[in-house]
């Protein structure tokens, strides 16, 4: 993907440990894109909708979204982004500890593109993120407007 490097990865994750582990493993699978880590849903929405909060970083974006977030939770972020004409094309990967079938289907109903469960077993965790990195590296991301 010639333009994949220009894509910013927005990691919305309130657990700094998780964020760090995700970032480490993405880097290990040769993802070199800029990764912006935000720790709650409000910050994520501000980042996306408020140009002044973006510190010059431009779209296109790819979002890795946790569900259990403070202020505004992952579901609400998902709902807002997928309901808005300007942002509904942004690929959203839900990355969470939950593997409850109802939550998975709720996320897909709200328009999430990929749902990944964080395994507790670190080997599996690394493997999951590595594979996600592989997918991201070959994904075509719509250009920002």
């Amino acid at each position: 993907m010639p333009d994949s490097k220009e894509v910013t990865i927005l990691l919305v994750e309130d657990d700094p440990g998780h964020a760090r582990l995700i970032e480490k493993n993405l880097r290990r699978s040769n993802i070199t894109n800029e990764i912006v880590v935000l720790s709650d849903g409000q910050q994520a929405l501000d980042y996306i909708f408020d140009d002044s909060k973006r510190y010059g970083v431009s779209l296109p974006l790819l979002i890795l979204l946790d569900l259990n977030l403070p202020v505004i939770d992952g579901y609400q972020v998902l709902e807002r982004l997928k309901a808005d004409e300007r942002t509904k094309q942004i690929p959203i990967v839900v990355l969470t500890t939950t593997d409850d079938a109802r939550e998975v289907s709720r996320c897909y109903s709200l328009g999430c593109n990929v749902y990944v469960t964080k395994p507790v077993e670190y080997d599996e965790f690394s493997e999951a993120i590595r594979k996600l990195g592989l997918v991201l590296s070959i994904m075509t991301i719509p250009k920002g407007e």
Binding site: G17, H18, L21, N68, T97, T98, V120, E121, Y122, F125
Partner: peptide
């Protein structure tokens, strides 16, 4: 039970992850 199960799981990911790291 449901909430506790999820909230308890999140720190475990870190414990496992950083132990491996």
């Amino acid at each position: 039970v449901y909430i506790v199960s999820h909230d308890l799981r999140a720190p475990l990911v870190n414990l496992k992850g950083f132990a491996s790291e």
